[in-house]
């Protein structure tokens, strides 16, 4: 079973995330890392391959720093990496990102499974997996909190707002996973050393046959016209419970007309 895992290098939520002067997310001036939910995607792919055979290929699209996201996945145990990077990609929106990733997956070769995280931790749109399924013509099996592969069938549990669903599809398929699906491993020392020898391909748009006019900020189908830092919340009232904390809390709610 060959699996492609799509991963994203994102600005660290613990650092001061911000925008560039062209209204795009600052991906260079801020500390970044492998998007946390993608670790669950990598872990799930490794578990599946370890239980059968085959290879896990990790693909990312992003600036030079995004190589770190691939490296982390290789340290966890993925077999090889692909880093799609091109000046022209700066400012790409979700449709362009899905276009490039779809072409990269085609070039890697027809995998049995494409696995992604349910969303990146920066944009939190959770639309690229569905777009990839649409573009690749694969069954969309998304938001998996449990996953089993048997023969050429994949089955997941998808927990929605009002119900928990079982979804079944034939391979090849596209799966996105939630953070409930497994417990990602930490890279071992051996894994970290081994990752240094694993192959990482560098691809530009020309390698994928994607026209630069289809991607990047100018080709985006949406446009951020303004961004503004929210004013910090005003410091509220804090009381120490001296046996009347609950009463005071209720008084506050009453004064605010919540009762």
């Amino acid at each position: 079973m060959n699996i492609v895992v799509c991963v994203k290098y994102v600005p660290d939520a613990q650092s001061e995330r911000t925008f560039d002067s062209d209204n795009t997310t600052d991906r260079v001036g801020v500390d970044g890392l492998l998007s946390e939910i993608d670790e669950y995607a990598v872990e799930e792919a490794l578990k599946i391959v370890e239980a059968s055979d085959g290879e896990v290929t990790v693909v990312t699209m992003g600036p030079a720093q995004a190589a770190d996201a691939v490296k982390k996945a290789l340290q966890m145990g993925a077999h090889k990496g692909v880093h799609v990077s091109d000046e022209a990609l700066h400012g790409s929106d979700a449709p362009a990102t899905s276009l490039v990733l779809a072409e990269a997956i085609r070039k890697i070769g027809a995998p049995d499974l494409v696995i992604t995280g349910m969303a990146s931790t920066d944009g939190i749109m959770s639309v690229v997996p569905a777009m990839l399924a649409e573009r690749l013509g694969l069954p969309q099996v998304t938001f998996a909190s449990e996953l089993t592969v048997e023969g050429d069938t994949v089955t997941i549990r998808r927990d929605g707002d009002v119900a928990s669903e079982t979804i079944v599809a034939s391979l090849p398929a596209l799966v996105s996973v939630t953070d409930q699906i497994n417990e990602p491993r930490y890279p071992s020392f051996k894994g970290i050393m081994a990752a240094k020898k694993k192959p990482v391909e560098q691809w530009g748009l020309a390698d994928l046959g994607v026209d630069a006019g289809q991607v990047g900020l100018d080709a985006a189908w949406t446009k951020v016209t303004e961004f503004a830092k929210r004013p910090p919340r005003e410091k509220g009232t804090i009381v120490v419970d001296e046996g009347d904390g609950g009463t005071k809390l209720a008084e506050f709610l009453s004064a605010q007309k919540f009762l």
Binding site: R233, G236, T237, V239, V240, D241, G243, G245, G246, L249
Partner: peptide, 12 residues
Amino acid sequence: VDFGVVGDLFNV
């Protein structure tokens, strides 16, 4: 917070 109580939730 707009309002906070420093205390044990099992009491408050």
